[in-house]
Design a protein around this nucleic acid. Structure first.
Length: 895
RNA sequence: AGGCACGUAGCUCAGGGGGAGAGCGCUACCCUGACACGGUAGAAGUCCGCGGUUCAAAUCCGCGCGUGCCUACCA
């Protein structure tokens, strides 16, 4: 054949991702293939992106998360859905503020010098410059988001949603303000929610300190890991039933170093078994002590300031850093002989999740959301199945947290974020919560109102993301079409931070759950299973991987390794493997294009399809169903695996090889045309099925394939209607092809085992008692001759055998490969002995079963029949092989 | 302290009551008219250990060992 009379669009020898990726991405975007319709007749499918931080750069977690979302979105588009993938970024209050503060620091400035307004301006400026970096990186991943609708949590629309929610919750009594102990980061100088504190086991010390009685001799010994807080002690507590403290010389002690008198109180919170059973109480610096203080109406004495240094209340220690103060306090106690012991002690220490500094429990005025009333419906929604959490093992984690949920501290003492819409009257101190600044105080009419300086926790605005991005509080067509969203794809690390809160807010404000499904995926780790982190130096940059191997190979790797509930261990080696796969697909297409000069609407029913033709169409149908079913269940690895197996090991390994004779045979134009039709159909459908996983290479081939038009994104997923035509059972073409494959493999096996040159053309006889089997082999003889490289193939009934042939048994068929002049018989004898050994082992296991009466009694009939059948088959095979072995041994001399 | 995963070939992992699987690596042979980023064949596993349920356990249950993670008001 002359290639130039065929397709004019010959492919290069290898696939080069760099040459095509950007071009196709721009094409898709320009042609509007990512755009959702506000409303139309198609079934809606929607996903809101977990908004990356504006400060962020794309890491492996993003890559996995967004690849999965993109696979789902592209798949649903091919199935004909109206798909909305809503993109956007998060303003990430503390993280972003830190970034800009660091920039200022580099110029010797801090935000206070700049002032609030100027500082916020600087943050916006920073966002203008670098805020879209991560968006561009998502595009390189191939993410098919509807970019026209991109949102930012600080946009005017989303800010309005935030204010609306705040005002309504306040009016409903679900938001309150008060003096409480919160986790305080002295570095970021803001309160944090419980979730924003990371606990880490650290080696510290447990100090035992004597507090002398105010009157009489002796004293009470307390234990603490944070001696510096003693300066703020306002009581010592013991258990009410503790006999050791039933009869004390005094009801108060002198607080050492401060030399003030503080009471001894009795509270059941105290654990009698710990230390001496006496607890120092610091209401201003410990959450439990705070509660004890409330119960006993103790005063609070705040000794650590918001910047982490000791304040005026710390007396002689004023001005010291909290850790320096700890040392100083210990030394001072030692001098006075009041430090009784200091023992190594492991304890969990809270760290700020943004800056990693040690968090200080601190008393301050904060805003809170009363969460219990919101959590209850959110729990019920999962219990009832209104929202499914997948895999469901995460539902348990969700419940655990939701049942034990505590009020949510939402105020942050930073500048970058949504300023709390609350105003205080300068005249009467009245607090007003409203959508906009009131002109005058509704209580006293004064006009001096000042707005609360705190901003809201970033997660407060992200909790509204599924509906605020769609235009809420307005009732938009978008909301009507796409809320509730179809699925949320996210990592388990933000299940509480984000998912749980979206559930609560979505149900409360929309009256309906925000998502039908929540698919929770695992983490991407390095190849040793360690979390990737900059400090460990084991980070693999997704963009480097894309540059080296191409986006499609990278995406395929992620999909193939994303088994539910299991971390993805990534190494470049694995990506390389999938690059080979992409290249394999490319070359299969290259081959196909050499044989195709036009497209075909559908397989011509009148066409005379060969066995390989009918077989590959059946396999294609099966694979397509497997992929669809797996994706419907979020089993990305199974979907990727099924397609991989099909393309490489069925389409390339067997179909293309088996179809070659027909494709090259100019003497039989009808058969050739039939083969071309099938080749075209299978390639086209395969491209569509693969497109969600490997969008770029499939679009590139689609473009070159005759008979296709437009983008592959407009194609239809080739899922046949109705149940599989043959159910689980193999159809006749599959059964027949399995026989041919087995025969060819058996011949190749003999070739390999006997060290027969690949070039040698063999004489083979197959003998079968079954007329149908013989007929089939006869029919397909050309395939066997071609694939097994035979000189001649004889098909007969069982009978005469050449004494000098190697034998293999395939089902009821015996295969004889003539070895005369090709090989020495000692080797063949050895090979047969080895195979007989294997066979005997298998047979004895089966015989053991069949000799077991309980097995025959209790096992299902079908199972017993199956084992019996197998026993017959194997013993026949054994007989034949033994006979052959005897012959080979006997004729050894003739080789 | 509680909870949740996981332990299968040299490596990374699928599978999951009745014949031990894949990819990579390894060995041998092969540049056969798409592909050496390839082809053909092969070697390789006490399915962590011990008990139990069952006719039958890698698979279900219990205990143990190991690993990872999450939660917690552990002075």
């Amino acid at each position: 054949m002359e290639p130039d009379v065929m397709s004019t669009k010959m492919l290069d020898k290898g696939y080069d991702p760099k040459a095509v990726e950007q071009r196709w991405y721009e094409f898709w975007e320009r042609e509007g293939h990512f755009a959702a319709a506000d409303a139309d007749g198609r079934p809606p499918f929607s996903i809101v992106i977990p908004p990356p931080n504006v400060t962020g750069v794309l890491h492996m977690g993003h890559a996995l998360n967004n690849t999965m979302q993109d696979i789902l979105c592209r798949y649903r588009r091919l199935k004909g859905d109206n798909v909305l993938w809503m993109p956007g970024t998060d303003h990430a209050g503390i993280a972003t503020q830190n970034v800009v503060e660091r920039q200022l620091a580099a110029n010797g400035q801090d935000r206070h010098q700049l002032g609030r307004e100027k500082f916020i301006e600087a943050v916006w400026q920073w966002r203008e410059q670098s805020g879209s970096a991560i968006i561009n990186q998502l595009k390189r991943l191939g993410a098919s988001c509807d970019w026209q609708r991109e949102r930012f949590t600080m946009d005017e629309g989303l800010s309005r949603a935030v204010r609306t929610v705040f005002v309504r919750l306040y009016e409903e009594g679900l938001i309150y303000r008060g003096m409480y102990i919160t986790n305080w980061c002295p570095r970021c100088r803001t309160a944090l929610s419980d979730l924003e504190v990371e606990h880490e086991e650290l080696d510290g010390h447990l100090y035992q300190i004597r507090y002398p009685f105010a009157r009489g001799k002796g004293g009470v010994v307390v234990a603490t890991t944070r001696p510096e807080t003693m300066l703020g002690d306002t009581a010592v507590a013991v258990h009410p039933d503790d006999e050791r403290y039933a009869d004390l010389p005094a009801e108060s002690v002198i607080l050492p170093l401060m030399e003030i008198e503080i009471p001894i109180i009795r509270d059941a919170y105290v654990d009698r078994a710990f230390g001496t059973g006496a607890l120092k109480v610091t209401p201003a610096h410990d959450p439990n002590d705070f509660e004890i203080g409330q119960r006993h109406k103790l005063p609070s004495n705040k000794v650590i300031e918001d910047d982490g240094t000791m304040g005026a209340a710390a007396g002689q220690f004023q001005g010291l850093d909290r850790f320096a103060c700890r040392k100083a306090v210990v030394e001072a106690l030692q001098e006075k002989g009041l430090l009784l012991s200091m023992q190594p002690h492991k304890h969990g220490v809270g760290h700020c999740y943004r800056c990693k500094n040690v968090v200080e429990p601190n008393l301050s005025r904060q805003w809170f959301v009363k969460v219990k009333p919101l959590a209850e419906p959110a729990i019920r929604a999962v219990e009832s199945g209104a929202t499914r959490i997948i895999p469901d093992t995460w539902a348990k984690t969700y419940y655990d947290w939701m049942y034990n949920i505590k009020d949510w501290c939402i105020s942050r003492q930073i500048w970058w974020g949504h300023q709390i819409p609350a105003w205080t009257c300068g005249a009467c101190e009245n607090l007003v919560v409203a959508m906009a600044a009131p002109a005058q105080c509704p209580a006293c009419g004064a006009a001096e109102l000042t707005q609360e300086t705190d901003v809201l926790d970033t997660w407060f605005s992200s909790a509204l993301w599924p509906f605020s991005t769609m235009g809420w509080p307005d009732q938009t067509p978008l909301l009507k079409t796409f809320y509730p969203t179809s699925v949320l794809v996210t990592g388990f690390d933000i299940l509480f931070f984000w998912v749980a809160r979206m559930m609560m807010m979505g149900i409360h404000f929309m009256g309906e759950v925000p998502f039908r499904d929540v698919y929770v995926h695992a983490l991407v780790r390095d190849e040793e299973g360690k979390k990737m982190s900059k400090s460990k130096g084991n980070v693999i940059d997704p963009l480097d991987v894309i540059d080296t191997y191409g986006t499609d190979a990278f995406r395929y790797t992620l999909a193939a390794f994303a088994a539910q509930g299991r971390d993805v261990r990534l190494s470049e080696k694995r990506v390389e493997g999938y690059r080979h796969f992409i290249n394999k697909l490319w070359n299969a297409a290259r081959f196909a294009l050499m044989h195709l000069d036009r497209g075909y609407d559908r397989i011509d029913p009148a066409a005379l399809l060969s066995l390989p033709d009918r077989w590959i169409l059946a396999r294609l149908d099966r694979m397509t169903r497997q992929v669809a079913e797996a994706l419907d269940d979020y089993k990305f690895n199974e979907a990727a695996g099924a397609a991989y197996q099909f393309v490489w090991h069925e389409f390339c390994d067997w179909y293309l090889e088996a179809a070659k004779p027909a494709l090259y045979d100019e003497g039989a134009p009808a058969a050739r045309e039939a083969a071309r039709q099938v080749l075209w159909t299978v390639l086209r459908d395969t491209l569509v099925v693969l497109h969600p996983f490997a969008p770029f290479v499939t679009e590139e081939i689609w473009d070159k394939l005759p008979g296709t038009s437009g983008s592959i994104m407009q194609a239809t997923f080739p899922l046949a209607e109705g149940p599989p035509p043959d159910g689980e059972a193999l159809n006749p073409a599959e059964t027949e092809m399995a026989l041919i494959v087995a025969l060819v493999t058996a011949i190749r096996n003999i070739r390999g085992e006997m060290n027969i040159s690949p070039a040698a053309k063999l004489h083979v006889t197959v003998q079968s008692p079954e007329p149908a089997t013989r007929a089939a082999i006869d029919r397909d003889r050309a395939i066997i001759v071609n694939l097994a490289r035979l000189e001649a193939l004889a098909v007969t009934e069982p009978g005469e055998r050449s004494p000098t042939s190697a034998t293999a048994i395939v089902a009821d068929t015996e295969l004889l490969v003539e070895l005369k002049g090709v090989i020495d018989f000692a080797q063949e004898a050895q090979r047969l002995e080895k195979e007989l050994g294997k066979l005997n082992k298998e047979l004895s296991a089966i015989n053991k079963k069949l000799n077991n009466d309980s097995f025959l009694d209790k096992a299902p009939e079908a199972v017993v029949a199956e084992v019996r059948e197998k026993q017959v088959l194997l013993s026949e095979k054994q007989d034949k092989l033994s006979a052959t072995h005897a012959r080979v041994v006997g004729f050894r001399g003739e080789g």
